[in-house]
Design a protein around this nucleic acid. Structure first.
Lengths: 253, 253
DNA sequence: TGACAAAGTTAGCCTTGCCTTATAATATAA
DNA sequence: TTATATTATAAGGCAAGGCTAACTTTGTCA
C-alpha cells in the first residue's frame, strides 16, 4: 500500500477528478457514469479503479459504489483547484474565450506545479483588489490586445487620474458609512476581503482553513436558512457554519 | 511523408528543442550531444531521429550531422517560445524562484495552447508598459504575497499618487527632451516600444515580423559593428540588419 | 597505411500505460 | 424468477519510449 506514491498519471488524475464530480453530485460514483463521462468502455474503468484502489485513493469493492478516500479526495481537489485556477485566470484576466480556456485548463492541470498555482491565485486576487487595477484595468488590457498599442501619454494620464478619483470616492464612501459587515451579508457569487476574524471557538478552524486578515473569499452558495455557507478560498471549496461566517468581518469588494 | 502531422509527443518535442539549441550553438547537432543533453542512451537517439526524419522535421542521414528542416525549426521555435514565455511570466511577474519557474516551464511547454501563450506575452508586455503598473507595481504584488493583505486605504492612496506623479515626471522628461531615437540606440538587454516604422525597402519585412506601432522589442545582442541586431518580439527571436533597425523609431522604456 | 577509439546504427527486447473485446458474474426490478 | 443492465475478468493489442549488446562507420594519429 504505497499510499504516498509519487505522481499519478494524467489519466488516473482524470479518473479521480471525474469520481470527485460525480460523487459531489450524487454522493457516490458508479462505473457506468465514469465510463460515460470519460468516454471509455466499462472494462477500462474497472482496471483504473483497481489501480486507484490499490494506491489507496478510492474505496472500492466489486459491484459496490465508489467513493474517494481521504488521499483521493485531496488529490482530486488539488486537480480541480488547478483546473479552476487556470481557467479563471485565462478567462477573467487574459480574456481567452471560454472554450479555449477550458481546453487549456484541462491540458495544463496535470503539469502545473503547486507553487505556481498558489501564486497564480494570489496574483488574480491581487489584480482584483489592488486599487491600481481598479477602474477597468483588465478591460484596458483587452483593449490593448486589440489595438496592439498602449494609449497615448495623454490618454494614460487621463486613465490614471480617473483611477485615482474613483479610488478616492470609494474610500470616502466606505469611511463615511463605516458599517461593520460580516460574511453572512455577502451575496452568492460575490467576493470580499477579510478585515478581521473575531475570536471565538471556531477561530482556530478558520485560521487552519487559511482565513485571516486580507484573505479573499468568494461566496458560492448559501443554504436556505443561511446555515452552511459554501465559499471558495485560495481555490479551495469550503463549507462553514453560519456562526463561523458571522465571526468573519469583511470589506465588501 | 505526412509533413503536416497532428501533434508531436512531448518527448519528440524535447528532441527538436534540444537539436535547436545545439544547432544554434554549433551549427549542427550530433547524436552524442543530444544523448548527453537528454540523458538517454545513444541507441534511443537514433530511433527518435529516424522518427523525426520520417516526419520531415530534421535533415538526417546516417553518420551525418543533424539540422532542422523548415517545419522542424518552426516547431522547435514554438516550443522554445512557450518555454521562455512561461518562464518569464513565472519568474518576472509571479515572482517564482528560477528553479521552479524553469521546471514548471519545462513541464507546461508541451501542453499550453498557442493562443494562451500569445495572450500571456501581450499580458506581460502590457504590465511592463501600462503606466498604472509603473512605480513598482509588480513589487507591490510580491509584497502582497508575503503579507497576504493589500495595504491600508491610506497606503494605497499614497501608492496611487506616487504612481501618478512618477508618470507625470516621466512624461515631462520625455516631452521636453523630445529626441527621436531608433532601435540602434537601445542597449542589449533593454526593451522599448515602437513608435513608428519609417517607410523603406524593409518596412514590409518588418511588418511581416509583427513589428509595428506599439510592438515591444527586446534587444538581445548587437554584433560588433552593430550590424545584425538580435531582437525578441512577441517571444520570437529575430535578427535584423542595421539599416532596418535604423528605420524603427522607438520610445525608450 | 592501418589500427584503434569514438561515435553511430541496428535489432531485439522490455516496461508501462491505457485501451479494447468477449465472456462471465452479479444486481435490480418487473 | 427471470430478463436486463451493470460490473468484473481475462486476454490481448498497441504505441511510446527506453535499454543493451553487437556491429559498422568515421576520423585520427602514429
Amino acid at each position: 500500500m504505497s499510499n504516498e506514491s509519487k505522481q499519478l498519471s494524467a489519466s488516473l488524475e482524470d479518473y479521480l477528478e471525474t469520481i470527485y464530480w460525480i460523487a459531489s453530485d450524487k454522493g457516490a460514483a458508479r462505473a457506468k457514469d465514469i465510463a460515460t463521462s470519460l468516454n471509455v468502455k466499462a472494462g477500462s474503468v474497472t482496471g483504473a479503479l483497481q489501480t486507484l484502489a490499490r494506491l489507496g485513493h478510492i474505496n472500492y469493492a466489486p459491484y459496490e459504489v465508489i467513493t474517494l478516500t481521504e488521499s483521493g479526495r485531496e488529490i482530486a481537489q488539488e486537480v480541480v483547484r488547478k483546473h479552476e485556477t487556470l481557467k479563471e485566470f485565462f478567462g477573467d484576466i487574459l480574456g481567452i474565450s471560454p472554450g479555449v480556456a477550458e481546453e487549456g485548463a484541462c491540458k495544463m492541470e496535470h503539469s502545473v506545479p503547486d507553487e505556481i498555482v498558489d501564486k497564480l491565485i494570489m496574483f488574480t486576487e491581487f489584480i482584483q483588489s489592488c486599487p491600481r487595477c481598479g477602474n477597468n484595468w483588465v478591460e484596458q488590457f483587452h483593449l490593448y490586445c486589440k489595438e496592439k498599442a498602449i494609449g497615448s501619454m495623454d490618454k494614460c494620464q487621463n486613465c490614471l487620474e480617473k483611477c485615482a478619483t474613483t479610488f478616492a470616492e470609494d474610500k470616502n464612501k466606505l469611511q463615511s458609512g463605516n458599517i461593520v459587515t460580516d460574511l453572512t451579508s455577502v451575496e452568492p457569487g460575490n467576493k470580499c476581503q477579510v478585515r478581521s476574524v473575531k475570536r471565538g471557538p471556531a477561530s482556530k478552524r478558520l485560521a487552519e482553513m487559511g482565513i485571516s486578515r486580507g484573505t479573499i473569499i468568494e461566496v458560492e452558495r448559501v443554504a436556505p436558512l443561511g446555515d452552511p455557507v459554501e465559499i471558495k478560498v485560495k481555490g479551495y471549496h469550503l463549507s462553514i457554519r453560519k456562526e463561523e461566517a458571522e465571526n468573519i468581518i469583511i470589506d465588501q469588494a
